[in-house]
Amino acid sequence: MADNTKPWRIVAVRRLSKPQLDTLSEIADVSYFEDITTTNRADFMSALATAHGLIGGKLELTEAMLAEAPLLQVVATISVGYDHLPLEALSQRGILVCNTPDVLTETTADTAFALIMATQRRLVELSNMVREGHWSAHISSAHFGTDVHGKTLGIVGAGRIGAAIAKRGALGFSMPILYTAGTSKPALEQELGAQRRSLEALLSEADIVCLSVPYNDDTHHLINAAALAGMKPTAALVNIARGKVVDEDALIQALRRGQLRAAGLDVFSQEPLQADSPLTAMHNVVVTPHIGSATHETRDAMAQLAVDNLVQALAGKGPRTPVNERHWRRTNNTQEG
């Protein structure tokens, strides 16, 4: 039953700890859903119909759902990306969207470098060889990997995460750094000696290409058949961005034809990745289940940031990491608190 003494109603979905839920409960009547299924979807929609705030991970929100949520003021997604949300429709309605950048930068960069190491040194393939009982003699050159130190690392998208990956490569492994970005990055160039390139030039020069761009219309299938054909046949592709940044069918074909030596993938066009995907059967492909930010510490920090954003926004104050604050302030005539 709703507590009429509290001014707000919040719907929370996934990833929130008890202390975080307690924080929300101090200011609002909270409806918490560990997951949204066919069994509880009607209950979720009923709660959303009277909600002022929505918070959670992997939020599924459509324009049709918005039409049934007339009181909604703030959506706090526990993620950096917000391509799963109808941002334009939310902005038109004056609904604030907040995300959780920064707190996952280092962890996601760690994941990227783990994939770099795994693809270069064939860690998963050779570990499976041992587990399956096929290590019966000293390994031959057929099992050799490729060095990481000194190789040229190409960063496609030199934002926070891309820059963190570049630092690991340059400072930890003496890797020359190439990057693509909408504007030059003087700090990155000065600190790491990074050099800005066009996408085509980067793909042709880099030994390892790491994707860390946001997903949007401009980056959909940014890495397509033509782009893959422009890479070195000895190169590896690592994707921690979004699955649809890569034309997955074209990638599979490039790997089969030997146009590309290896791939390390944490994201896919369809998630979860289907068990019968050709990618799962390729020894030169490392696949992980979208674990970029999946550590206890980072996920808790992301959730806490989302909680802080939601609480501050409902109080009429400026949240820490808004996405479309201008639309929200204009519609609600909200002043900085």
Rank of each mutant, 00 (worst) to 15 (best):
T108L: 01
A109Y: 01
D110P: 13
T111N: 02
A112K: 13
A112Q: 02
A112L: 05
L115H: 08
I116V: 12
I116T: 01
M117K: 08
M117N: 05
M117G: 11
M117C: 12
T119M: 07
Q120V: 12
L123F: 07
V124K: 02
E125L: 09
S127P: 07
N128L: 12
N128F: 07
V130I: 08
R131M: 01
E132H: 09
E132F: 05
E132L: 07
G133R: 06
W135H: 00
S136D: 15
H138G: 15
I139N: 14
S140I: 13
S140Q: 09
A142Y: 15
H143V: 04
H143T: 03
G145N: 02
T146F: 10
D147H: 14
V148E: 02
V148W: 11
H149Y: 15
H149K: 15
G150H: 12
K151T: 12
K151G: 05
T152W: 05
L153A: 00
G154A: 05
G154M: 10
I155H: 08
V156S: 10
V156L: 06
G157C: 08
G157I: 12
A158F: 02
G159S: 05
I161L: 08
G162H: 09
I165S: 06
I165Y: 08
A166V: 07
K167P: 11
K167S: 12
G169S: 12
A170Q: 01
L171V: 15
M175D: 03
